[in-house]
Amino acid sequence: MTERIVVVGAALVDSGRLLAARRSAPPSLAGCWELPGGKVEAGERTEDALVRELREELGVDAEVLSRVPGEWPLRSPYVLHVHFARLREGSSSPAPLEDHDDLRWLASGEIWDVDWLDQDVPAVREVVELMGVRDGGVRG
């Protein structure tokens, strides 16, 4: 059996809005939106990986709050785990530093206005439900 590699994504929330990041690389994913995050390194806790990835990708200091129940398959052997997080007081505003070319804070009515990566849609649906956002027109 192939060992699974965990990728951690951030449901970064501020004032009821969710942060989405638009991929700039690799070319096959460019232009699609995702929850920011990245691969958990060997021996690293998922929470620590998320804090590190948000610092590297967005230049922010974030606090991990709670894990979103479930996991979502990505390209084998990767699986996605998502955690709610928030910016720590005094953190700079997020900026697209690595692998992204744009960021958007999405209010409840805007969640599905971006073209989410297909692999992120089920996780975003779960995040939206836990945020208490009811869209009615959830795609995917």
Rank of each mutant, 00 (worst) to 15 (best):
L54A: 04
R55N: 14
R55P: 10
R55V: 00
E56C: 10
E56F: 14
E57D: 14
L58E: 06
L58N: 08
L58Y: 01
L58Q: 11
G59R: 08
V60H: 06
V60W: 02
V60M: 03
V60F: 07
D61F: 00
D61P: 04
D61M: 07
D61G: 09
D61A: 14
A62Y: 08
A62H: 04
A62R: 08
E63L: 04
V64Q: 04
V64K: 04
L65K: 12
L65P: 01
L65Y: 00
S66A: 15
S66C: 10
V68H: 01
V68Q: 03
V68P: 02
P69R: 12
G70F: 04
G70I: 08
G70Q: 11
G70E: 08
R75D: 14
S76E: 13
S76M: 07
P77W: 06
P77Q: 09
P77D: 05
P77L: 09
Y78M: 05
V79M: 03
L80V: 03
L80N: 09
H81A: 13
V82D: 05
V82F: 02
V82C: 05
H83Y: 13
H83I: 00
F84K: 01
F84D: 08
F84Q: 06
F84H: 00
A85C: 03
A85P: 05
A85M: 02
R86Y: 01
L87H: 02
L87A: 07
L87N: 09
L87V: 03
R88N: 01
E89F: 03
E89R: 13
E89G: 09
E89D: 12
G90Q: 04
S91W: 04
S91E: 08
S92N: 15
S92V: 12
S92H: 10
A95N: 00
P96G: 09
L97I: 10
L97R: 15
L97W: 05
L97E: 04
E98M: 09
E98V: 13
E98I: 13
D99R: 15
D99C: 09
H100N: 12
D101Q: 10
D102Y: 05
L103N: 01
L103C: 05
R104K: 14
W105F: 02
L106C: 08
